[in-house]
Design a protein around this nucleic acid. Structure first.
Lengths: 336, 336
DNA sequence: TTTTTTTACGAAATCGTTTTCGTTTAATTT
DNA sequence: AAATTAAACGAAAACGATTTCGTAAAAAAA
């Protein structure tokens, strides 16, 4: 049913190699022959079998994007950006989610070890505690580029936003709007981006001579019920914080839910700021002040670097940190 | 660097075919040989080259998911569902977006024609006006399953929600809450799901003896600026509708924006209901009454049907319509 | 003991390309 | 006219696995 080179060759009474070269517009083939081949290919609806070429060339024109979850606007925007660049470069994209599970991440990486993809774009799982699988992948000749949740221990390109500065800025914004007792909702202690945001938070507290209170650092994780419990605890009792800095969108939404049911008014009683790529931030009640990462740009940039590296037959991917700044959008959740 | 079967065979002093069979646990190979091969494979970190197998077996263990856009909660949830099933079945997922562009959709389908994937899950573009490319794909032996934005003209499995009933229910809900002049915001005149929702809307109007006013059918499209203009026009002047039924989330959000800037209060002045998979529907100002499609389930179901079909060497995919009901969640945007 | 069957393995074809070498004929140079 | 070069094509070897078929040795049956 599906025509291949051999079929074309037989029909035309010429050799397979001639057909192949004609289709690739080789200088070795005469003009009239090329025309005949092209015509026949169109007639039979010939399309090359990609896997045959992959096998021969050891190139799959495919990359993998590995993210902790899909139901997260940041990752979706990043993927969209990468996808745009991939389409421009005629690359295909395989998607994998780790569900923030270390074992799953390792298993996925192992599957990518064998040449299925030419490169990987990855944001590490929050439970990842060792990095050997990444090094193994690189040693197998598959370049990997980290974005957002990066891994400093691996020598490669990494794209993030200015997490430290953004953390500082977010906290300073709360302070300037009158907060003195600010809680930090941490995504995961293992992630460098979270630590940087937290360092920015510390730095701001320091600058304004606010003592750091360790009980105001809430270490959240994968278990949503546990997160809810911790946030409920934070927001109950007599001494609740007057400001909350959420390192990630879903924790801010949780705060909204808890405040709604506990009748804690935002921003009068407590002000909330969050890293977020929510499209509806301005429509929330109240509208949410956000630090928005240029996720789409980050995805595009990560893909661009990967393709640039793949296009030249150069050796290893150099160690570089690319930073694209986030933007603070002030809305009502932090209103004085 | 990367070990292949030949390397294993040479190291062990046995033939390639024996190694291959040993790894596949063939009955033809003795127990001690199998052990030796397994040990050597582990030692050299052997992983099979997937493309070699694909070429040989004409099976790629890969499916494609083609959607109009990624920045849409419905599609993301559907993809997540499909991805879960794919992981269970050891399948890989290629993602493509058409950006609601017919030409792009055709081009993507053409790329999938050559055996790159074993099957396709697709939601058609809103500008798609002919279906030959789908038939061509099927004739090339690649099964395709439609979800949500389906194509009735193609004989295959299709998964949707109960669009007609949901459209009716949504409209009836508005009527019961006092609306008499309800506008319908259409996603695209070409899409059957949109038409069904609209039919449900008509049916509800009929049931309650409300005359259909064609000027209240707003045909939106891909051009966001145009959509904004149309919605602004709808909501300006002296005679604005008292209810709005948005066929898709992003149009409802546009209504919110326009109402915000025009100081039209929801739900006092106008009530809004929308098909939507927004996670933040309950946090909006006001919270949005939604018809929520079980997107995750729909994605899972679509993938399940595809894998079931792929697992048995049967011929064609039978024509069937699977319907998973949406749920109406009443919130403040339609409050009396 | 002879014949048959089973067990365990290897040789080689195959999947559909790409690419390296020839090789033939025509064109060009001495 | 002889020698060289260029143009146009074909044969065959890869790429790395799977699988069919053949065969030797060992085991079982006669």
């Amino acid at each position: 049913m599906k025509a291949n080179l051999k079929d074309l060759a037989k029909d035309l009474g010429i050799s397979v190699s001639t057909v192949s070269k004609a289709l690739r517009d080789s200088y070795e083939i005469g003009e009239k022959t090329k025309q005949r081949v092209l015509a026949k290919a169109a007639e039979l609806g010939y399309t090359p079998n990609p896997y045959a070429g992959f096998l021969r060339n050891n190139k799959s024109k495919t990359i993998a994007i590995v993210v902790p979850e899909l139901t997260n606007n940041y990752f979706i925007q990043a993927i969209s950006g990468a996808e745009e660049i991939a389409q421009e470069n005629n690359y295909h994209i395989l998607i994998y989610t780790t569900n923030d599970n270390f074992e799953k991440e390792k298993s996925i990486i192992k599957h990518l070890m064998n040449g299925r993809v030419d490169g990987v774009l990855l944001s590490i799982s929050s439970t990842t505690s060792s990095y050997m699988h990444f090094n193994e992948l690189i040693q197998n000749g598959v370049p990997i580029i980290f974005f957002d949740r990066i891994c400093h221990e691996i020598e490669t390109a990494k794209i993030t936003t200015n997490d430290f500065a953004s953390g500082f800025l977010a906290t300073e914004h709360l302070i300037k709007n009158g907060c003195r007792d600010i809680a930090y909702l941490s995504l995961s202690e293992h992630l460098s981006i979270d630590n940087k945001r937290k360092q920015g938070y510390f730095e701001a507290l320091n600058k304004y001579d606010i003592k750091i209170d360790e009980t105001r650092i809430i270490n959240c994780g994968v278990d949503e019920k546990m997160n809810t419990k911790k946030i409920k605890k934070l927001l109950s009792g007599s001494k609740i914080p007057d400001g909350i800095f959420a390192s990630v969108e879903r924790l801010a939404l949780k705060v909204y839910h808890v405040c709604n049911s506990a009748k804690i008014s935002i921003p009068q009683k407590i002000k909330v700021i969050s890293f977020s790529n929510l499209r509806t931030a301005d429509l929330l009640n109240p509208s949410l002040t956000t630090i928005t990462q240029p996720a789409y740009e980050i995805g595009k940039e990560a893909a661009k670097i990967l393709f640039k590296h793949l296009s030249k037959r150069k050796s290893v991917l150099l160690n570089e940190n690319i930073i694209i700044d986030s933007v603070l959008t002030i809305r009502n959740s932090t209103k004085k």
